[in-house]
Amino acid sequence: MNKSMKDLVADARSRVDGIAPADAHRAMAQGDVILDVRETAELKSDGAIEGAIHIPRGLVEAQADPETGKANEALAAKRDGTGRVHVLCASGARAALAADSLRQMGYDTAVIEGGLAGWKDAGLPLRA
Score class of each variant (00 low, 15 high):
42 E>M: 13
113 E>M: 10
65 D>Q: 11
88 L>G: 02
57 R>I: 06
98 A>S: 07
59 L>M: 15
91 S>F: 06
46 D>F: 14
3 K>Q: 13
72 N>P: 13
109 T>M: 06
40 T>M: 10
11 D>S: 15
126 L>M: 01
124 L>Y: 10
22 A>V: 14
57 R>A: 06
100 D>N: 10
59 L>A: 14
3 K>W: 11
105 M>F: 08
67 E>T: 15
6 K>H: 14
23 D>Q: 11
63 Q>M: 15
113 E>C: 06
107 Y>G: 06
82 T>S: 13
30 Q>R: 10
102 L>D: 02
65 D>F: 13
29 A>P: 10
45 S>L: 15
52 A>C: 01
11 D>N: 13
77 A>V: 06
124 L>R: 08
25 H>P: 03
37 V>Q: 00
127 R>G: 07
90 A>E: 11
96 A>T: 05
111 V>F: 08
111 V>S: 01
11 D>M: 14
66 P>C: 09
66 P>G: 14
35 L>S: 03
56 P>E: 05
45 S>M: 14
14 S>F: 11
47 G>T: 07
105 M>A: 15
45 S>H: 02
50 E>S: 14
19 I>A: 07
70 K>I: 15
77 A>G: 04
117 A>E: 12
105 M>T: 03
47 G>I: 07
50 E>P: 12
51 G>W: 09
85 V>R: 03
112 I>A: 00
46 D>M: 14
92 G>W: 03
58 G>Q: 05
109 T>Q: 08
99 A>L: 01
95 A>M: 10
38 R>C: 11
28 M>I: 04
34 I>H: 02
77 A>E: 05
107 Y>C: 03
74 A>Y: 00
24 A>H: 03
84 R>N: 02
87 V>F: 08
19 I>Y: 05
38 R>G: 08
82 T>W: 05
116 L>V: 13
53 I>C: 02
